[in-house]
Write a protein that binds this DNA or RNA. Structure first.
Lengths: 248, 248
DNA sequence: CCAAAAGTGTTTAAACTACACCCATGT
DNA sequence: ACATGGGTGTAGTTTAAACACTTTTGG
């Protein structure tokens, strides 16, 4: 075993000791409850030390032979059943001491977290409570204090979500196959706030771009004129792939 | 020692075996040679197996007690002496098998790479050749085949560089304290290509924003009317922090 | 008929584009 | 004087923002 201070190579041949890591994957999973206009993040309650009983992001440690993304999908599938989702890597947190399981003196194993960002459709995301002491969709503004540095990760994920919405067609990954322009608008306002654009301008701007295709089918939701159902045409979107700010 | 197939918990109490990691940091370091209008990436030649003698990104393994960012700064400082630089995390690559040092059968230690993106000022970046078998600023289009998955990382870094230029004031991190608007324009065209904007429009757009402040000092470079030296006012820039596309 | 939701159109200001043109310097 | 790079101005077009208006439904 190494002493509790690493030697910075007194002997020129001896390399300074490398750190050994366990790698965790933590997911920031968002969904939008358009009925109540709320942006939700999935939180689970920790069932073991450290931070027993405290809320945190759903996470897991990476297993032998498993890729980072596989681990992200695994933990996601353990917590919710969902048809459509969007997932991408967020950021990697690895400062020494970010996990209390690291013994502060002995330079033992380090815990690194590769965070992933996911967006799922709220209406068909079914929470799995299997032997978990707590799992919940938390409205973002009401998120409690989280274990580890997870508040920081959550905040970072929220920023990414807003950027993604503005620049890329993520929204269509979590909307149903056909949707009204109001569904789309609700999703945007819930995430970005009321004052990002007025509905009629949002509407005409998007339609002019030509990748939303009117199915002609009308759907009525209570009072008011029935809305057209639209379909996202991924093919017609390709020219806009690298263009900034298509959606705002 | 574990067998060469991990058991997926026959016993419900036994957890599936976790992977053990070494964590590497690989830097994509860019600089812009405005004199020759070339975008350069820093490459070094590997001095040990695997990939002995092949070009790769400057990287290192993270040591005990060292943060990821510290490791990124350490490897950078080992290769170049530089006054100003911009550095941020890029992406984390961790598929099993991405490093040949991982023994394919035995589920031994895994090698994960957290990549960092850096931009330095070419004119005052002094390469350190200390006992290195090769180190070079490679024009991006002429980059050779690199060790590991480093071509992929480099490509990813180039994309990030273009985005950063468009949305954030990174350019001023690598320009001298005072610079002409042409210096700035050259930097942009070198990275983004000739046809991103014409000079006079680029110029008036930026000046109108009000965070470039004319020092009044004129500087002459050969023939032609002398140019004004400008200074970037970080304070006056703050209102544009979160606004998209300030520079194009 | 009225309220509510969907969808269209108009007006005004601002921004982008592509130039043409003037200015100050070295040779 | 003239080529060279720096800098200003403008006309024409395109977008953005605010908001009034029409259409179609449920009650």
């Amino acid at each position: 075993m190494a002493g509790n201070r690493p030697k910075k190579s007194a002997d020129p041949v001896t390399q300074p000791a490398l750190a050994d890591f366990k790698v965790g994957v933590d997911n920031v999973i968002f969904s939008v409850d358009t009925a109540q206009n709320r942006l939700l993040a999935l939180l689970v309650m920790r069932q073991e030390e450290p931070f027993l009983g405290q809320w945190c992001l759903p996470g897991t440690l990476v297993r032998q032979g498993e890729s980072l993304e596989d681990a992200a999908y695994r933990i996601l599938a353990e917590k919710i059943r969902v048809k459509n989702l969007y997932l991408e890597q967020l950021y990697t947190f690895g400062e020494p001491g970010r996990d209390p399981r690291e013994s502060p003196d002995s330079y033992g194993v380090r815990y690194l977290s590769v965070s992933y960002f996911a967006l799922v459709r709220f209406e068909d995301a079914e929470l799995i409570a299997n032997g978990v002491s707590g799992i919940a969709w938390y409205p973002l503004e009401q998120a409690p204090q989280l274990a580890f540095d997870h508040n920081q990760i959550l905040k970072y994920g929220y920023q990414r979500l807003r950027n993604k919405l503005e620049y890329s067609p993520v929204a269509f990954e979590v909307l149903p196959d056909v949707f009204t322009l109001n569904d789309l608008y609700q999703l945007y306002t819930t995430v970005l706030g009321e004052n990002f654009s007025d509905y009629s301008n949002f509407r005409s701007r998007l339609l002019k771009l030509g990748f939303l295709h009117d199915t002609g089918i009308k759907v009525s939701r209570g009072a008011g004129r029935p809305a057209s159902l639209y379909r996202f045409d991924a093919n017609a979107f390709t020219p806009f792939k690298d263009k900034p700010l298509v959606f705002i």
